Simulated scan of single mutants.
Amino acid sequence: MTFRDVDGAFDSGVDVVACGMQNLTFLDVVGLHAVLDPARRLDARGITFFAYDRQRQPRRLLGLIEELPPAADIRVKAGEPVPSPV
């Protein structure tokens, strides 16, 4: 299953999505969004997302994201100004 396939899980009664990342050896910013965007959409629908068997570099990058305070996860709606840092 790919991350694009995750969208199909939204309406099919799925409670948990587990993502094996054992073959992902490198993760850049584009790849990071490819992981986080579906995870956030799943979370918004009450579906739990797990990423497991993370390799060293992706695990480090995802770990940095997990350490960010919730305020850093700013969601901007279309047409609204971007909030300035406090």
Rank of each mutant, 00 (worst) to 15 (best):
T2C: 07
R4N: 14
R4A: 12
V6Q: 05
V6N: 03
D7I: 12
A9N: 06
S12C: 10
G13F: 02
V14R: 01
V14M: 02
D15H: 05
V16E: 00
A18W: 15
A18V: 14
C19A: 15
C19H: 08
C19G: 05
C19V: 10
G20L: 13
M21W: 11
M21C: 08
Q22G: 08
Q22Y: 11
N23V: 12
T25D: 14
L27M: 04
D28R: 02
D28W: 08
V30S: 14
V30P: 06
H33Q: 14
L36I: 13
L36K: 11
L36E: 07
D37Q: 11
P38Q: 00
A39T: 08
R40K: 10
R41F: 06
D43N: 08
D43I: 02
G46W: 08
G46Y: 01
I47C: 00
T48E: 09
F49E: 08
F50H: 10
A51N: 01
Y52K: 04
D53F: 12
R54C: 13
R56Y: 12
R56E: 13
Q57S: 05
Q57L: 05
R59S: 12
I65G: 00
I65H: 04
E66L: 08
E66P: 06
E66M: 04
L68Q: 06
D73Y: 15
I74V: 13
V76W: 08
A78S: 07
A78Q: 15
G79D: 07
P81L: 14
V82C: 12
P85G: 03
P85S: 06
